[in-house]
Amino acid sequence: MAYPKDLLLSRAVIKHGSYAIVPPEGLVNNVIPGFENCRVSILASPKMGASFVHYLVTMAKDGKNIQGFGGEGIETFVFCMEGKIKTYTQEKSAVLEAGGYMYCPPGEKLYLENMVDTETKLILYKQKYEPLAGAQPWVVVGNVNEIAERIYDDMENVKIIDLLPTDLAFDMNMHILTFEPSGCHPFVETHVQEHGAYLFSGEGMYYLDNEWIPVKKGDYIWFGPYVPQAVYAVGREKLAYIYSKDCNRDAAL
């Protein structure tokens, strides 16, 4: 860090209970018990209005969490953007490189260790699991580079990847949505589900609660329930992001 070279400005937009855009320039390091040699930024939490917690984690050499992340009633998910990590639970272990991910069901703690001398960059997620009688989710390991994209809503220039099974045992999913330049949503969505999205690449104009707002690579967006939302991809690169979605459960009274 250094003295500012100009006026203090920010692209951040925070509408508590509605939506938020969190650019990378404003992120700070949070000290989280259990994480060693890591920079951890909390991107979304219930303090904002989200029902989950999303993190951006940068692991330095020897970075790790060997105390465990998650636990009773909490499901977790980790996605490796850069570098290489070892992930494990009591029942399963895996080595994740760029594009690799692991989902851990409630009751299974997730352990993380950086396996390279350089930095490893992760997206980390946790939420309370909503049980369903007779159903139990399981540990899922995969890599997006080994999953075929499918066309999104009959639009050839928009593709989606589902990272978790479409099984009622899972009350959430993670997706990667990719828009070619000039790609867009087919309509303005207004729904009960909320999302947390981290932008991997490109630029776009996002429609959020009746406003058009520019977004780009490195931004994080939280979408609250029933917030009108849609995007146009702009610029020369594909716009791509990983996002969370609650699913497979009825609305509670």
Rank of each mutant, 00 (worst) to 15 (best):
L56M: 08
G202M: 09
N143F: 15
E25Y: 11
D162T: 05
K245Y: 05
E203A: 06
P24M: 03
A44F: 08
K64T: 15
V144L: 02
P46I: 05
M205E: 12
D171C: 09
A12G: 12
Y207N: 07
Y103C: 11
F69H: 01
Q67F: 09
G83I: 00
C184P: 06
F52I: 14
H54N: 10
C104P: 03
D219T: 11
L9A: 14
L112W: 15
E194I: 08
L199S: 04
G99R: 02
E130P: 15
I213C: 01
L7Q: 07
V188I: 13
E75C: 06
L177H: 03
Y101V: 08
I242V: 06
Q127N: 13
G99E: 12
G83E: 11
T190M: 09
G224Y: 04
S41T: 07
E130W: 11
N210F: 03
P33L: 10
C104D: 12
I213M: 06
N157T: 13
D209P: 10
L253V: 01
R249Q: 09
C80Q: 05
L56A: 03
K109I: 15
A50T: 12
L199K: 04
M172R: 08
E156P: 13
L7V: 14
Y103W: 14
A233G: 04
L208Y: 04
Y220N: 10
E189T: 15
T87L: 05
E36Q: 06
L124D: 08
A230T: 07
L112S: 06
G71V: 06
G218N: 09
P4E: 07
D219H: 07
I213L: 03
G49Y: 05
G49S: 03
N173G: 15
V78L: 04
I123P: 01
V28W: 02
T58H: 02
K245G: 15
N143E: 10
E97C: 13
D246N: 14
I161G: 01
A233S: 12
K64H: 00
A135Y: 02
L199F: 09
A148K: 07
W138H: 06
K15R: 10
E180T: 01
G218Q: 13
F179E: 03
A135L: 14
T89I: 04
L56R: 09
K159R: 15
D117K: 11
G235Q: 08
M115R: 04
W222Q: 01
K217V: 07
Y55F: 14
Y103L: 06
K216G: 00
Y243H: 13
F187P: 05
L9F: 06
V141R: 00
F223N: 11
A197H: 08
P165K: 03
Y198A: 11
V141M: 05
L112C: 10
K47A: 11
F35L: 00
H195E: 06
G134Q: 10
N248T: 09
